[in-house]
């Protein structure tokens, strides 16, 4: 599946300044793996070892994946996967 990944401003220096990048994958996990292959600098931002960092929320078409199937959430062609820093509010 071809999807669009939204990159938040603190990660954009690692995507040549692009706010949205294209990626492939059938699940959220596969999409993220593809993104870090294309932009290797993002790996350390997104992952702590093999685990995704706690303070990044991942949304598929504006829905938090924790309310879907988390990283196993299936993505369809054309969806937008957004990476959003989670430390806010309260």
């Amino acid at each position: 599946m071809s999807v669009t990944v939204e990159i938040p401003s603190p990660m954009r220096d690692l995507t040549d300044g692009q706010t949205r990048v294209a990626a492939e994958g059938a699940t959220v996990a596969a999409v993220l793996a593809d993104v870090v292959t294309r932009y290797p600098g993002l790996r350390a931002k997104l992952y702590d070892g093999d685990k995704l960092r706690h303070y990044i929320n991942i949304l598929v078409n504006d829905e938090d994946v924790r309310y879907l199937d988390d990283l196993d959430t299936v993505v369809n062609d054309g969806v937008v996967v957004a990476l959003i820093p989670a430390v806010a509010g309260g």
Binding site: P10, A44, K45, D48, R53, Y55, I56, P85, A86, V87, A88
Partner: peptide, 21 residues
Amino acid sequence: LCGKIYPKSPVNFCTDDFGPL
């Protein structure tokens, strides 16, 4: 989370691990 120090500025998370400042 990681202890990195930032100057006083309008920023709320660490740019390395997105932990709270």
